[in-house]
């Protein structure tokens, strides 16, 4: 037993140092030099103040902003300290109730809009921090935002397409609109 324990302890310790200390330190060193902004959370700064991360969604409920994905995080929506989904199953009536409330909120903010609602505006994201909506979900809200900000709908649609991220090489993933970046850009031009 003792003859096993000595190599076990030494090899365990050495491999722990290699994989648990040296490896993450080396990665951190390279990351901080090569990709400092990304390695530190892709923080967006406006007027010298951090206003969020490009990659972490924020909750928007004011009708003059574009709204993001519904979030099921605990405490408050898009709580970055409590990532997670709703975990409501497909036969759980609580899911229908949540969707009903979201659909009602959308119609209350824009009573004239009878277009079918894109499904990503009615369903909670997996992380609760999804920074994106689909282009269809942005277009669905374009009329409302344009009206409340006194902008032409074409201008708002142009902003949407400027903030639309394509599939990687036109192949991977889905087209998407970054809600925080879109709203920040809106704030710089509109009321």
């Amino acid at each position: 037993m003792i003859d096993m324990l000595k190599p076990a302890v030494i090899i365990f310790t050495l491999l722990s140092i290699l994989t648990g200390i040296i490896y993450p330190l080396v990665v951190t060193g390279i990351a901080q030099v090569a990709f400092p902004s990304k390695a530190n959370g892709s923080i967006v700064v406006k007027d010298g103040r951090a206003v969020g991360s490009e990659l972490i969604g924020q909750s928007f409920t004011d009708p003059k902003y574009f709204w993001g994905r519904p979030s099921a995080t605990t405490g408050f929506p898009d709580n970055a300290m409590a990532s997670g989904g709703s975990n409501l199953g497909p036969t759980n009536p609580a899911l229908a109730d949540a969707v009903k409330a979201r659909a009602a909120a959308l119609i209350a903010a824009d009573p004239g809009n009878r277009l079918p609602v894109p499904v990503d505006l009615l369903t909670a994201s997996g992380s609760g921090l999804d920074p994106h909506i689909s282009p269809a979900a942005a277009m669905y809200q374009a009329g409302r935002v344009a009206r409340l900000r006194g902008l032409s709908e074409d201008k708002v649609k142009e902003l949407i397409s400027r903030n639309t991220e394509e599939r990687w090489l036109g192949l991977l993933g889905e087209e998407r609109v970054n809600v925080l970046k879109l709203n920040l850009e809106l704030d710089t031009i509109g009321r």
Binding site: P90, L95, V119, T123, S125, S127, P135, E174, R176
Partner: peptide, 15 residues
């Protein structure tokens, strides 16, 4: 185009 079709509950738009 640009519209997710299916069960998006618990899923991320980018994927």
């Amino acid at each position: 185009a640009g519209l997710p079709a299916g069960n998006m509950e618990g899923k991320e738009v980018r994927f």
